[in-house]
Amino acid sequence: MDSLTHSRSIWKKAAPYLLIAPTIVWYGFFWARPVIQAFYGGFFDLNGHFTLDNYKFVFNDPYFLQAIFNTFFIAIVSVAVEFVLAFGLSLLINIRFKGAGVFLFIATIPMALPFVAIAAMWKAGLATYGWLNSFLYHVGLIAKNGKIVFMSGNKWPSIFVIIIIDAWGVIPSMMIILVAGMQNLNEELKEAGYIFGGTRLTVLRKITIPLLKSTITTALILRIISAIQIWAIITLMFGYLRLPTLVSQLVFYSDQRAPADPVYYQRALAYSVIVAIIISSIVILYLKVSGSFRKEENG
């Protein structure tokens, strides 16, 4: 009897660890091991000798600086544009007009579409003889000979095109976070603002936005993290190397060059590490501002 209760209490103590063990094992095997190998492998050549050549290659890669610039420039500009638009849209939805539910439904459709489908759509859309120019012609905005060259392949127009495509696909998820934040706001505070004579704008500026601060940070940082995905659209629209980003270089070297010359695997690993470090620091920043670290102390 005594031993039974004893074994039961051991079982009870062990239960959560047994339940969580598979997750830890799985993560250790399929996540931590690759991560460690990436860090480790980046410092070795094909024969297993220690070398800094892979990193030297990355930092001397003529595309590296461009990749850094493009990654950050596109991320920052598109995040800014997307945030302003998403914020406006969520204010709109928050008015709770008739049909807001339907509108929210429509606005979230792009979330479900695979990147590849989105790219197929825009690639056919933005061709000079594609559907966007056709539409502009049908509504009388351009003449038959006035087709707009959206895809010239030059740097700035390409960046512009990419930001628009990305905004189309990403605004919905940003909007949802903001709408959620707004709905959780204390309405009384806003009412108080109106009672004390605030206009819509001052209430927005002095009450809504400050109260939404943590929601906004969440939305922004999550967005910056997923901005790393932007390489896919770029590659699909313009091919590799036309508008290099960090991740597109990583995939380019590992998928396009390594089969002919395996040393590119090691170089791609160096790229992996750089990408991982940049993203991890943003994630940690996110966890910090979102207050996840503080919760830990409360237990």
Binding site: W31, A38, G41, I228, S254, S272, I279
Partner: peptide, 8 residues
């Protein structure tokens, strides 16, 4: 964490 970074 970006999964592409660990793909290789």
């Amino acid at each position: 964490f970006p999964a592409v970074a660990t793909a290789i």
